[in-house]
Amino acid sequence: MATITDRTARVPRLALSVSEACEAIGCGWDFFNAHVAPDLRIVRRGSKKLIAITELQRWLDENAERVLEGA
C-alpha cells in the first residue's frame, strides 16, 4: 500500500513559493524581488505567493543572452 508521501512525491509541481523560485534559478531574495518578480505573473492568496514554473521558464528564455562564437 502506498503512503501519502509516496503519492505526493509523484505529483508534478506546477508552482513554487518565492524561496523555492529563488533557489530554482539560483538567486537571492533581494535580486529576485528587484529583477525577476516585476516581470512575472504571481498568484497571490493571502500571504502566500506562488510562481508557476512555466513563468520562471518564460522569464529565463526572454532574458537569456546568446553568446557569439569567438566572443
Results as ranks from 00 to 15, higher is better:
residue 1 M to Y: 02
residue 1 M to H: 05
residue 1 M to T: 10
residue 2 A to F: 10
residue 4 I to N: 04
residue 4 I to E: 10
residue 5 T to A: 12
residue 5 T to W: 00
residue 5 T to F: 00
residue 6 D to E: 14
residue 6 D to A: 11
residue 7 R to K: 14
residue 7 R to W: 06
residue 7 R to Q: 08
residue 8 T to M: 09
residue 8 T to L: 14
residue 9 A to N: 09
residue 9 A to Y: 08
residue 10 R to L: 08
residue 10 R to K: 13
residue 11 V to H: 08
residue 11 V to T: 06
residue 11 V to A: 06
residue 11 V to P: 01
residue 12 P to C: 01
residue 14 L to Q: 06
residue 14 L to G: 03
residue 14 L to T: 03
residue 14 L to M: 07
residue 14 L to D: 02
residue 15 A to I: 04
residue 16 L to A: 12
residue 17 S to I: 01
residue 17 S to P: 05
residue 17 S to L: 10
residue 18 V to Y: 00
residue 18 V to D: 06
residue 19 S to Q: 06
residue 19 S to H: 02
residue 20 E to K: 14
residue 21 A to Q: 01
residue 21 A to D: 02
residue 22 C to V: 09
residue 22 C to T: 09
residue 22 C to K: 07
residue 23 E to N: 15
residue 23 E to T: 15
residue 23 E to K: 15
residue 24 A to N: 14
residue 24 A to G: 01
residue 24 A to R: 15
residue 25 I to L: 07
residue 25 I to F: 01
residue 25 I to P: 00
residue 26 G to Y: 12
residue 27 C to L: 03
residue 27 C to E: 03
residue 28 G to H: 05
residue 28 G to E: 08
residue 28 G to Y: 00
residue 29 W to Y: 14
residue 29 W to I: 11
residue 29 W to N: 10
residue 29 W to G: 03
residue 30 D to T: 08
residue 30 D to S: 13
residue 30 D to H: 11
residue 30 D to V: 04
residue 31 F to P: 00
residue 32 F to V: 03
residue 32 F to C: 11
residue 33 N to T: 11
residue 35 H to D: 01
residue 36 V to W: 04
residue 36 V to K: 09
residue 36 V to M: 11
residue 37 A to S: 14
residue 37 A to H: 09
residue 37 A to R: 15
residue 37 A to E: 11
residue 38 P to V: 08
residue 38 P to F: 00
residue 39 D to A: 13
residue 39 D to E: 14
residue 40 L to I: 08
residue 41 R to F: 03
residue 41 R to P: 00
residue 42 I to R: 07
residue 43 V to R: 09
residue 43 V to P: 00
residue 45 R to P: 00
residue 46 G to K: 06
residue 46 G to P: 05
residue 46 G to R: 06
residue 46 G to C: 09
residue 46 G to V: 05
residue 47 S to N: 12
residue 47 S to H: 04
residue 48 K to Y: 02
residue 48 K to M: 05
residue 49 K to W: 02
residue 49 K to Q: 12
residue 50 L to E: 14
residue 50 L to F: 09
residue 50 L to P: 01
residue 50 L to I: 06
residue 50 L to D: 12
residue 51 I to T: 08
residue 51 I to A: 07
residue 52 A to R: 12
residue 53 I to C: 10
residue 53 I to V: 15
residue 53 I to N: 05
residue 53 I to R: 14
residue 53 I to S: 02
residue 54 T to D: 15
residue 54 T to I: 09
residue 55 E to K: 05
residue 55 E to P: 03
residue 56 L to S: 06
residue 57 Q to T: 12
residue 57 Q to Y: 14
residue 60 L to W: 02
residue 60 L to P: 01
residue 61 D to A: 13
residue 62 E to H: 03
residue 62 E to A: 08
residue 63 N to F: 06
residue 63 N to H: 15
residue 63 N to V: 03
residue 64 A to G: 11
residue 65 E to N: 13
residue 66 R to M: 11
residue 66 R to Y: 06
residue 66 R to H: 12
residue 66 R to T: 12
residue 67 V to P: 07
residue 67 V to I: 15
residue 68 L to W: 05
residue 68 L to V: 11
residue 69 E to C: 01
residue 69 E to N: 12
residue 69 E to R: 15
residue 69 E to L: 12
residue 70 G to Q: 07
residue 70 G to E: 07
residue 71 A to N: 09
residue 71 A to C: 10
residue 71 A to D: 14
